[in-house]
């Protein structure tokens, strides 16, 4: 995208709360922004490195509980707790990545599902620390150097900043030597190794970096909802998050935002619609697989088709050749 459009998009994003002027809608957008970062981190792990991780919600939970405990029980300021939570989640991600460094594809998936279940049990049963079924309530709202993000609108700008910073960071990582190494591992780990890439180390790094972002999001989320509940970080939640990344297109960062938008914002349009959310998602996934097998903005996705149509209008011949069969 050209710089001009980027600036326009950012200006538009800044103006969203005054335009929609509805606390409830702003809240939905806030949630959309935060889930977007989770979808981005899933994209980094699943889309770029090809490691099918189905336990992302566990890392959100780790970040959330870590930050909640640090602020509520130890009285740390928000910003410190927030950053420590990211580091903590990243550390656990590195440990899990280290343990799975030799696991083949499907086994890694099973390990992450198992890890999610373990975290769930720990959140529920380690009552002195996590509060058990009751969770941790009265988590303070974000407060950075005296500025309170205590309304939805104020929080909106924090979430926007968080999303923009995460997006830029991921974009740069993915377009660097490191991101190329991730993609090389996904496409052919043996050839990657022969190119001098320490495959095991890079898999661990990938998992750790993804977990930092997931953990930070979990922490931000818990300060927003002010309540850490053990029921928010289930396997169902992980799968729903995975669907956001897949729907948008694995390997496309912008796609993650689109996928998240569809799965977070659309079900909120009306409450009655919300009841049929899973039905809607199921149909959507089937339709997507038929028409956009690599996701909406993935390879041969909406973006590339639009370009093809435009070229077709100019050239005339190329577009017909494809649609013939």
């Amino acid at each position: 995208m050209k710089n001009k459009y980027k600036i326009l998009l950012f200006m538009f994003a800044l103006l969203i709360p005054p335009i929609i002027r509805n606390e409830y809608y702003v809240r939905i957008v806030n949630i959309f922004y935060m889930y977007s970062v989770v979808a981005l981190s899933i994209n980094l792990i699943v889309g770029f490195c090809g490691q099918l991780d189905m336990g992302r919600a566990a890392f959100m939970g780790l970040g959330a509980y870590c930050s909640a405990i640090l602020t509520v029980k130890m009285g740390l300021p928000f910003i410190a707790a927030f950053l420590i939570s990211g580091a903590f989640s990243g550390l656990i991600g590195a440990v899990l990545g280290f343990l799975c460094r030799k696991s083949a594809f499907d086994y890694l998936t099973l390990v992450t599902i198992g890890f999610n279940a373990i975290c769930q049990i720990v959140f529920l049963n380690w009552i002195p620390v996590t509060g058990g079924v009751m969770g941790i309530s009265r988590v303070p709202q974000p407060n950075i150097f005296g500025f309170h993000f205590d309304t939805n609108t104020r929080f909106y700008y924090l979430a926007l900043f968080f999303l923009a910073a995460s997006f830029i960071a991921m974009h740069r990582i993915c377009n660097s030597r490191m991101g190329r190494a991730f993609e090389a591992i996904r496409d052919d780990s043996i050839a990657a190794e022969y190119s001098g890439i320490n495959v095991q180390l890079y898999k661990i790094l990938n998992f750790a970096i993804g977990s930092v972002f997931t953990g930070l999001t979990g922490a931000l989320f818990v300060h927003y909802t002010q309540y850490a509940s053990p029921f928010n970080y289930t396997l169902d939640e992980s799968i729903y998050q995975l669907q956001m990344a897949i729907l948008g297109g694995l390997g496309s960062l912008a796609g993650s935002l689109v996928g998240t938008f569809i799965l977070v914002v659309l079900p909120e349009i009306s409450r009655s619609f919300y009841e049929y959310r899973l039905l809607f998602v199921g149909i959507l996934m089937v339709v997507m697989m038929l028409y956009f097998p690599n996701g909406l903005l993935g390879k041969e996705g909406v973006g590339e088709r639009l370009i093809a149509v435009r070229l077709g209008m100019l050239g005339g011949k190329n577009s017909r050749k494809d649609s013939g069969g």
């Binding site: 030597r177 190329r180 190494a181 993609e183 090389a184 996904r186 496409d187 052919d188 050839a191 990657a192 190119s195 001098g196 890439i197 390997g251 390879k299």
Partner: peptide, 16 residues
């Protein structure tokens, strides 16, 4: 080869 990325990116991985 790294099939899903561009030719240039294949080369850049070679320069890892």
């Amino acid at each position: 080869l790294f099939d899903q990325v561009s030719v240039l990116q294949n080369m850049l991985v070679g320069m890892h």
